[in-house]
Design a protein around this nucleic acid. Sequence first.
DNA 1: TTTCATAGTTCAATATATTGAACTTTGTTC
DNA 2: GAACAAAGTTCAATATATTGAACTATGAAA
Lengths: 260, 260
Amino acid sequence: MDEGETGGAAQSVPALRRAVAILDHLAECGEPISAARLTKALGLPKSTAHGLLLVLVELDLVARSPEGLLRPGPRSLRWSNAFLAQSDLVEAFRRQVAADEHLSDHSVTLSVLDGADVVYLACRNGAAPLGITFRIGMRLSAPFTATGKAMFAAMTEADVRRAFPSRWPDPLTPRSVASLDAFLKELEATRQRGHSVDDGQVRLGMACVGAAVRDAQGLPVAGVALSFLEAEASAAVLDRFGNRLRAIAEALSRSLGWRG
Amino acid sequence: MDEGETGGAAQSVPALRRAVAILDHLAECGEPISAARLTKALGLPKSTAHGLLLVLVELDLVARSPEGLLRPGPRSLRWSNAFLAQSDLVEAFRRQVAADEHLSDHSVTLSVLDGADVVYLACRNGAAPLGITFRIGMRLSAPFTATGKAMFAAMTEADVRRAFPSRWPDPLTPRSVASLDAFLKELEATRQRGHSVDDGQVRLGMACVGAAVRDAQGLPVAGVALSFLEAEASAAVLDRFGNRLRAIAEALSRSLGWRG
DNA sequence: TTTCATAGTTCAATATATTGAACTTTGTTC
DNA sequence: GAACAAAGTTCAATATATTGAACTATGAAA
């Protein structure tokens, strides 16, 4: 999901770009925000924002409270549901997870990289009170997650460096890997081990193992992970489930045409 | 989620409206489609569609395959996740379902009405092989679903008739209620019974009970339902869980400010 | 290979969206 | 209640998006 180039004649469609910027901002904000704050934050002319927001509200992309506060509306649900329904990867993951009884008590997730974040595309939450519930569409800083680590471990160092051109993401816990250099060392260990490990980098008390899913060209296009309470995550357990996960990742990779 | 009015000065923002129409069509289509077919289906000028699609692809709202086929892209995930994260109703449902051990083996769903469909906002799928997996964002014709029946039973006959001005939705199974008049009779039975019942109208072999969630004004804003294999859905079971569900719907309604 | 139809791409004249400025409404302070 | 600042709304001149027509590329049929 790179910042793509338009190719050929440059197209602008500024209304659409601004609508997307508005929706992204509302999503990142995490709480309702006034039109004035939104307009200032995005540097839009008042009139433009006014017109755009009227239509965004009409189209159910934005919801306006009686007090005039704005938050995302429900329209995007139909598109995101359609995206997931038409994803071969998600379908393969859902099938694989439904069929695997070894994983039944644990949280299993599938995510992809989007810039410096992972985005969760499918989640099967287990019963353990991890203190975190994975949600489809949820984003986390990639270097701290088992899925992110697994995907980056399958890339060149140059590609990893390119993903983090400026400041390192804010840590999620005191255990979150603190720098790019330390991250590169972890990735080497991940490659040696065959699967990735998050030992409390996303959430204290939670441990995860992860593995990368590859496409037909061998590029890492997704990561799968399994999460545990830290108390049950002995080295033997992590290894056992790490291997299980690698097998799943391989099965998914093969369904995407990988022939490694 | 009515077709809202713009209020005040009419705003057009046609690029945005057309982008939304494109995304809706891709979502409804259910499979990848060529730009030419999409353009013809929506009656757009070729040039306009061309430009819009270039930008939609650039913004990750649409994905284009190497063969030029179009399908929804991943961008909407962040907005739909934000919408769900900021919904008091969804939050209350998630909390309620997580806390209720009576429901643990069954599929529990929360949906809202959108025109003649219900849209699922939250789903906790159980272990039973219902032959259907509820997904967030998924839509079904409302009259056949337990949640739809529950919501319509809490409306006036005029409002129900207004929701179905033209042809009756295509049945999902041979048991799907066949007409508006038959539906109105079902709604009367639902009101008498206190909860709704779908006895194979969505999927043969699956039975559901449902109840409506009301807002502070007493209007039905959502429905909750519990699904079973038909083989386990004796009248006693349906009644027991119907009552359980009504209690859940009441708790949710109260969290939305209902004081009935 | 040629022909033809369809799909995709480019471009500038025309249509209309954008937005600065003015106005109105709302909320706060004195 | 008056004064003031900020938020929200309107409107037409200006900027630019839209799109018909022309062109290019692709695929199928003969």
